[in-house]
Computed example of a mutant assay.
Amino acid sequence: MERRALLSGIGTTAVAALAGCASNANPGDGGTPTDTPTDTPDPEPRMTDSTFTVTDVSSGTQRDEASVAFDGDTVTVEGTIWGANGCKTGELLSADYDAEAGELTVVVGTKDREDAGGGCTQAIVEVRYRATATFEGGLPDAVVVTHDHGDGGKEVTTVTQ
């Protein structure tokens, strides 16, 4: 008879012990289900700032060129656009980032210098410039640089990283 009482006690203890193993609870946390970590997608690049500086204006030829550098959180465009006469200088017409395409488009144009006055040389000038765009969350996949002399613009370079 003692054997039956012993086997009956072991069976009840085993069932009680196994009941805790069947739950999806974390021990010691009040019985809440285990959370599965989820992958967080990489943040999308976002342009936060842009700058433009004319670094030199001198007589020259009708040069349109640009180079692009990716460094840290900044894209730098250095280039040369030409102006029709000595009264011209450069200006940033736009710096737009298309997140869906992953593409930064930089459009540089020419304008009359504010301090030009009335006596301008009739020679073509080369306007050297530096444009920067600062990003958070990564850099664009591609940069397109366009120069606009008042004729709608012409693509000068496209660089992908």
Rank of each mutant, 00 (worst) to 15 (best):
M1A: 12
M1V: 12
R3A: 14
R3G: 09
R3L: 13
L7V: 14
L7H: 11
G9C: 13
I10Q: 13
G11S: 15
G11V: 12
T13Y: 09
A14K: 07
A16R: 08
A16P: 04
L18D: 07
A19L: 15
A22D: 12
S23T: 15
S23I: 10
S23R: 14
N24K: 08
N26I: 13
N26Y: 10
P27H: 09
P27N: 09
G28K: 08
D29P: 08
G30W: 10
G30H: 09
T32Q: 07
T32S: 05
P33R: 05
D35R: 04
P37G: 04
P37V: 05
P37Y: 01
T38R: 03
T38C: 02
T38D: 10
P41V: 02
D42Q: 00
P43F: 00
P43E: 00
R46A: 15
R46W: 10
M47G: 13
D49N: 14
D49K: 15
D49E: 14
S50Y: 05
T51I: 04
F52N: 09
F52I: 13
D56P: 04
D56S: 12
D56Q: 10
S59L: 11
G60L: 01
G60D: 00
G60T: 02
R63Y: 08
E65M: 15
E65C: 14
A66M: 08
S67M: 05
V68Q: 08
V68M: 06
V68C: 07
D71S: 15
D73W: 00
V77N: 03
V77D: 02
G79W: 13
G79K: 11
G79S: 13
T80Y: 12
I81C: 05
G83N: 09
A84P: 11
N85I: 14
G86P: 03
C87G: 15
C87A: 15
C87M: 10
C87Y: 06
G90V: 03
G90D: 02
G90Q: 04
E91M: 12
L92Q: 11
S94C: 07
A95M: 00
A95C: 12
A95L: 09
Y97Q: 04
E103L: 06
L104S: 04
G109Q: 05
T110P: 00
K111F: 06
K111V: 15
K111Y: 06
D112W: 09
R113A: 01
E114N: 06
E114Y: 06
D115V: 06
D115W: 05
A116Q: 03
A116G: 01
G118E: 10
G118Q: 13
G119N: 14
G119Q: 09
C120D: 07
A123H: 11
A123I: 10
V125G: 12
V125H: 10
E126T: 15
V127H: 09
R128I: 00
Y129C: 09
Y129P: 02
A131K: 06
T132S: 14
T134Y: 02
F135V: 03
G137E: 01
D141C: 03
D141V: 07
V143R: 07
V144F: 03
V145A: 11
V145N: 08
V145W: 04
V145I: 13
G150P: 05
G150R: 04
G152A: 06
G152Q: 00
G152Y: 04
G152I: 07
G153H: 01
G153I: 01
E155Y: 02
E155V: 13
V156T: 12
T157F: 04
V159H: 04
T160W: 01
Q161V: 10
